[in-house]
């Protein structure tokens, strides 16, 4: 189908493809980064589970550091991924201000296997966030789901 044959009113990026990139999601982003979403009640269980995901992400950031220390070449290769994991951690902390920082497990990658080990850590964190997302709602669910997806993408790049 030739592009020019399409009706101009059906703007690909504006009207159909990016249907969700509107005011609603802009509000969502603000909710994720500033104040708690006030549209629905947050149960104590939800608050605890979100705080737990901060710990999961802290452990992942520590895993990037450990993998990089074990294999310096890997550290350079995944520096952008590590930085993104740090951004995710910052956003999670902002969404769960009551979360207390816990010392990540001092797990270390096996000799010569840092990449595979790191990939396993990324995949496990993604699964953990995705599972927690299902039990949340509103902006917290969106944030956890987005971070989980971002880590799925990291897992794909590390493959």
């Amino acid at each position: 189908m030739h592009p020019t044959a399409a009706p101009p009113s059906r703007g690909f990026s504006r009207r159909t493809l990016l249907v969700a990139s509107s005011v609603g999601v802009a509000v969502l982003a603000a909710g994720c980064t500033s104040s708690p979403d006030e549209r629905e009640q947050v149960t104590g269980r939800q608050a605890d589970e979100l705080a737990a995901q901060v710990g999961v992400q802290e452990a992942l950031v520590a895993a990037y550091t450990a993998a990089g220390a074990a294999e310096p070449a890997l550290a350079a290769e995944v520096a952008d991924l590590a930085a993104q994991a740090g951004e995710q951690l910052d956003r999670l902390r902002a969404a769960a201000p009551g979360a207390t920082s816990s010392a990540p497990a001092s797990d270390a990658p096996p000799a010569g296997g840092a990449r595979a080990w790191l990939r396993g850590q990324v995949a496990a964190a993604a699964t953990s966030h995705a599972t927690a997302c299902v039990g949340q709602s509103g902006a917290r669910a969106a944030l956890l789901g987005s971070i989980a997806a971002g880590l799925r993408g990291q897992d794909g790049r590390l493959a």
Binding site: S13, L18, A20, S21, G24, G135, S137, G145, A149
Partner: peptide, 20 residues
């Protein structure tokens, strides 16, 4: 990316865990 934005919106708006 367009699909991802739409599914994040679903996460933001959903009430059913199965939908999330």
């Amino acid at each position: 990316d367009g699909v991802a934005a739409a599914w994040v919106r679903v996460l933001d708006q959903a009430v059913e865990s199965s939908t999330r």
